[in-house]
Amino acid sequence: MAANHLTSDDMEQYVEKQMGDRARAAMDEHLAACAICGARVARGQKLDAALHALPRARAPQDLAARISAAVEWRMEQERARRARMPLIAVALSFSLLLAVWFGLEMIIAFQDNGVLDFLAVFTSHSEFSYSPDTLMALIEALPLSEVGLMLFALVTALVLAQQLVDTIRPNAMQFRR
C-alpha cells in the first residue's frame, strides 16, 4: 500500500483544497484506510488553521477617509494641471518667438552700430588704452534695449518651459502626514 501514500504535493493540494472532486475522493478513500497519511493531513490542517489565525494589523479608523480626501485633492490638482497646460504651452511658444525676434534685432543692431569693430580694436591692440571717451562710445553703440528684451524673453521662456515640464510630468506625489 506504501506506493499509494500521498505525496507531499498531494498533501498540500488536499489541505489547500486545490484538487478536483475525483482526485479528492480518491484521497479520501486512502486517508480513511491509512493512519500515516491521516496524521500527515491532520498536521497540515492544523498548520493551515494556525496560518489562517495569523494576527491582522488594524488600520487607523480614519485612514480610508483620509486617503479618500487625499485622492480627491489630487484629482482636483490633476484637473487644474490639465486646464493649465495649453495656456503654458501658448505662452512658451510666444516668448520663444519673442526671444528669437529680439535676438535677430540685437544682431542687426550690433552690426549697424559697429560694435564688432570696437571689439576688434579692443582685442587686437592689447596696448590700447581705455579712455573714457572710447568707453562711452562703446556703451552708446550697444543696442541695450534689444539685448535686454532678448534676455527677458529668453528667461521667461525658460521659466515657462520648466513649468510645462512640471505640468506634463508632475513630480512623484509626496503626501506625508
Partner: peptide
C-alpha cells in the same frame, strides 16, 4: 494596510504605502 504593515513593520510606512497605492 494589513499587508504593508506585515511586510514593513511600521505603521507610518504602512499608511504611506496604502495611500500611495490609491493615488
Amino acid at each position: 494596510y494589513n499587508l504593508a504593515y506585515r511586510l514593513l513593520r511600521d505603521p507610518m510606512d504602512a499608511e504611506n504605502v496604502t495611500q500611495e497605492t490609491f493615488l
